[in-house]
């Protein structure tokens, strides 16, 4: 029931990209190799549904690395064997591992010679996936899904003013580290204290889930008005534990991505719906596949509208209610 409604909502959000006339109906389907970091999820739904709605025949070939980047070399071999029309990449870490830096092409280590689109990626310029958003500098384009950090901070302030912030993140994830660094700069400029709390690294320098409880406690003790959750795959895997602990500590949480609020107990977040971002990515993929534009000419963009999610059950338990004015735009969950 819930999934059905979400699909409906996603379809309506993707509608702007579906307005054009249906493209080619018959002819050989385009072959798209989909390299996924943690399995098939909503962004992939949006990507697939876009082509269905546009009646563009595509042959989707998903491959999941299950968060294990050591599988990348084998996937590269497969990609070179298959020679697909397009490579789809999900997630910042996987995209970096597959494509490498834009200014250091190395056909042995990184994918070259095949057009690619990336999806659910944080700061592709800072992570050197592309040269700039306007001009990628290689046959690669894609979408961003995180609202600019200053916009997220304004959204937090609109809900509840703050003097102190705390953030928990995985220091091994470049996407999180960049966002936290940016937030640190902005907080310093605004005279706001930011407690940066990286999770502990265990054996093999892997992040230790057991350290989350300690970090939430530290955030509470720092007197933070908000606990900020950056776009972080490790935390996403442990979102139930994280948000439940924050709730028990009476610490309001604000997330950069959807699942901490929709599929956990986070209080609020300014997010792009994964489904819509997937459809937007498919829109760019279509331009490449039909030969309308070269991928190096297609700018990297984010959606222009974000969803302000508020989990009302959490708000009621914390007795931290969204201001009346915010309810005109917020989407209660």
């Amino acid at each position: 029931m819930r999934a059905g409604r979400r699909r409906l909502l996603g379809a309506s959000l993707a509608a702007p990209f579906l307005r054009c006339t249906p493209a080619r109906a018959e002819a050989r389907p385009y072959r798209i190799l989909m390299l996924l970091f943690r399995g098939w999820e909503e962004a992939c739904d949006g990507f697939r549904d876009y082509f269905a709605a546009r009646r563009v025949a595509v042959d989707l070939m998903p491959r999941d690395v299950a968060q294990d980047l050591s599988r990348v070399p084998r996937l590269l071999e497969e990609a070179y064997d298959l020679r697909p029309d397009l490579v789809y990449l999900w997630g910042t870490s996987l995209t970096m591992a597959v494509l490498g830096p834009w200014d250091a092409p190395d056909p042995r280590r990184y994918l070259t010679g095949l057009p690619a689109v990336f999806n659910i990626v944080t700061d592709p310029v800072g992570n050197r996936i592309v040269r700039s958003r306007e001009s990628p500098g290689r046959p690669v384009t894609g979408t961003e899904y995180i609202a600019p950090v200053e916009v997220q901070m304004r959204a937090m302030a609109a809900y509840r003013g703050f003097r102190r912030l705390a953030t928990i993140f995985n220091p091994r994830e470049q996407n999180s580290v960049l966002v936290v660094r940016r937030m640190g700069e902005l907080a310093a400029a605004q005279g706001v204290e930011l407690a940066e709390l990286p999770v502990a690294l265990g054996p093999g320098r892997r992040p230790d889930p057991d350290s989350i409880a300690d970090r939430v406690g530290a955030a509470k003790r720092s007197g933070a008005d908000w606990l900020y959750i950056p776009p972080d795959t490790f935390l996403n895997d442990h979102r139930h534990v994280l948000t439940r602990m924050a709730l028990n500590a009476e610490l309001p949480t604000f997330a950069a991505t959807e699942r901490f609020v929709t599929f956990a107990e986070g209080l609020a977040g300014l997010v792009s719906r994964y489904y819509s971002v997937g459809a937007f990515t498919a829109f760019k993929a279509e331009q490449i596949l039909t030969g309308q534009r070269r991928p190096e000419d297609i700018p990297v963009e984010s959606l222009t509208r974000f969803s302000f999610l508020v989990r009302m059950a959490t708000a009621r338990r914390l007795r931290v209610y969204p201001p009346v004015g915010l309810l005109r735009v917020a989407e209660p969950v």
């Binding site: 007795r319 209610y321 201001p323 009346v324 004015g325 915010l326 309810l327 005109r328």
Partner: peptide, 26 residues
């Protein structure tokens, strides 16, 4: 009245309505 009514129907108690003055100001 719309957003206030919405707040109330989302379960926010009347006494706990937040940001009313700012909303009125806008």
């Amino acid at each position: 009245a719309g957003p206030i009514q919405r707040a109330l129907s989302l379960g926010i108690p009347f006494a706990d309505l937040a940001g009313v003055e700012e909303f009125f100001g806008a």
